[in-house]
């Protein structure tokens, strides 16, 4: 792999949280316990990768995503986005990444979606031609026309997610972070969203990092997998290789194509694989 192509480089990330365990009443002694949410995690992601990031609840997945998007600072270790560090060049990085949290919309609740887009245009200083070009393309794939003049409170969950995705991609970011993008969305809308992500990835070489609990998202989209459990990285490689490894270990002679990914992931979470 050519190192020039690396767009995200995480090295020896560590994050520890202090957790208050307060028992009983107001005057109880407050005790703190340390939780190592992420310990010694290193990986790199290349331009154009679509990476599925999985782990059970509380495995350290969202902590890692928060660190990658600059919301949390690691206790130690470093994150370089396109060679830039959050500590020094935060604004520049923010212009290059798009973030979509499945359960938190960035769109203004009471006003038509298009107004939020115009806001993003000014906020990210998007030139007119890029804005128009993007709007044409998004309208085309995501059917924006149907709902862009309505406020989010009147939209379905799927429409809102599509609008959020469009907003995050308006300024042509190089990396797109998606946290649970298909949660609570119907099958057809899911397909649309996946097609859209794929197309953006192919046409613009946008890297995508996504967390999800929906295995079909991963099968449909990801070439690469990162598996995290109890704060440590268990696997960093292609989806294909993982299946192959599993087939060799537990396959009972079955071919890797026949093994369901969901089954593999269950075994990982149970601690029987990797």
């Amino acid at each position: 792999m050519n190192s020039d192509n690396i767009i995200i480089e995480a090295a020896e990330l560590r994050k520890t949280f202090k957790v208050k365990n307060r028992e009983g009443n107001l005057f109880a002694v407050k005790r703190y316990s340390q939780i190592e949410a992420v310990k010694d995690v290193s990986f790199s992601i290349s331009k154009g990768d679509i990476v599925g990031f999985i782990g059970s609840n509380g495995a350290g997945k969202s902590t890692t995503i928060k660190m990658l998007t600059g919301i949390l600072m690691p206790d130690s270790g470093s994150i370089l986005i396109n060679g830039m560090d959050y500590k020094k060049r935060r604004r520049e990085i923010m212009m290059k990444i798009g973030v979509v949290f499945g359960q938190r919309s960035v769109l203004c609740w009471d006003i038509p979606v298009i107004e939020s887009f115009r806001l993003f245009k000014d906020m990210y200083c998007i030139p007119n031609e890029i804005y128009n070009e993007n709007m044409d393309m998004f309208t085309d794939i995501l059917n924006l026309k149907e709902y862009i003049y309505k406020p989010p409170r009147l939209l379905s969950l799927g429409q809102r997610m599509k609008a959020d995705l469009a907003a995050a991609l308006l300024y042509n970011p190089e990396i797109l972070f998606l946290d649970e993008p298909t949660i609570g969305i119907d099958v057809l809308a899911k397909d649309r969203i996946r097609d859209f992500i794929k197309r953006i990835n192919q046409e613009r070489c946008t890297s995508v990092v996504l967390t999800t609990h929906d295995v079909s998202d991963i099968e449909a989209l990801c070439h690469k997998m990162l598996v995290i459990d109890r704060g440590s990285l268990l696997y960093d490689g292609t989806l294909n290789d993982m299946k192959e490894m599993f087939a060799v270990q537990y396959g009972d002679g079955r071919d890797k194509e026949e093994i369901e990914l969901e089954h593999i992931i269950k075994q990982i979470y149970k601690g029987r694989f990797l």
Binding site: I71, M94, M95, F101, R104, M123
Partner: peptide, 12 residues
């Protein structure tokens, strides 16, 4: 509610 996260991912 953790919504403050979104404010941290903006170029402002």
């Amino acid at each position: 509610t953790g919504k403050f996260d979104l404010y941290l991912t903006r170029p402002i």
